[in-house]
Design a protein around this nucleic acid. Sequence first.
DNA 1: ACCTGAACACCGTTCAAGT
DNA 2: ACCTGAACACCGTTCAAGT
Lengths: 210, 210
Amino acid sequence: MPLTPRPYHHGNLRQALIDMAVTVAEETGKDIISVREVARRLGVSSGAPFRHFPDRESLMTAVAEEALVRLRLRVERDQLDAPADPIARLKALGRTFIQWALHNPTQFRLVSSRRLFEFDRSASLPVHFDAVRQITMDLVEQAQLAGLLPAGSLPEMALALRALAYGLARMQVDGQLPQWRVDTSETERTLIAALDLIVDGLSRARPAPS
Amino acid sequence: MPLTPRPYHHGNLRQALIDMAVTVAEETGKDIISVREVARRLGVSSGAPFRHFPDRESLMTAVAEEALVRLRLRVERDQLDAPADPIARLKALGRTFIQWALHNPTQFRLVSSRRLFEFDRSASLPVHFDAVRQITMDLVEQAQLAGLLPAGSLPEMALALRALAYGLARMQVDGQLPQWRVDTSETERTLIAALDLIVDGLSRARPAPS
DNA sequence: ACCTGAACACCGTTCAAGT
DNA sequence: ACCTGAACACCGTTCAAGT
């Protein structure tokens, strides 16, 4: 007797594949998931996923698209609650970024290291990435105009601040913080403190001598 | 470890496997290499590598160990040529780190994201990692004592500066710089300029109000 | 002592056949 | 239109057998 008779047509297999891929990635901690295992867990045959995605890369692209939209929405929502001061807003942006990465490590890794899909082949990935980037650029520009950040190349300053938040998040996700003697229970607090240390320091910088 | 390696038909299979693993990784751009392909290219059977490494993870650990030693030696050598000023030395350290990452992207990725081996199972990895970390800590401490960096938690300031260099290097290696409108031919210059912008800004910070 | 090569249990992907 | 399941060409790893 079959334990659970399953319908021949799944219903919404495409979405189920995306959701199960996230689940499997989070459970195994691996960034490369097995399409066969995803299919197996959903009770469909090994060939079924390839009716909805031409290859594993395309499935991972769909997962990355959903993840990046969620990051963008969270950034935009947190910015609504942030004060008007551009320095405070920049710190809030960094905090959102770090917290999202720490709470969604596999999705952060997937979106960040573009090794499992073609970033430019997606219609949505560049759009959402750019929305977050534009928020960063605007805040840095406002801060520079208000004399709250050192003058100098706007793109380079924005890049550096993004790299700071990215590097802090990445070091945790890559498992490097134990080697930096960061207590596991203090990780999030430490990363945010390190971020604030730099931003606050920069906001107190004297003009460069000409 | 015998001083005179026992010959097989090429020489020392253990070392040949490590070298070929690097070659294959650099050629394919993938961070996961096929042990079978490494064996095939060396003209040995598919089972031969497992006489020298219990599994692929162990082979990748050996590759990572060699890579990290090379990074450490480069850092130490470049510090010899750097000026006495701790700010200049910190910038030189960041430059060495970024340049090494950009010129050895697959090895940088392997050493950084510890997904392909167990960092703590290696006797040498923690030692060399810590040597570089200690150089960072010493320079930050000297800079703080000389009033060239903001006061505040030494470990957090060192972590933040490392994260800055790490983030800049990672963004390039992860292929994100095109989305930040960084011209391909200007990558290295831009990353170093971004690093200097932050370090120089911090070195001009006024004391925090109490 | 070191290496071979068959064997096993996995993959991703394809495709004729079924519903 | 959607899914199955066999088939193919790969893997990592093991191990009895060869040199």
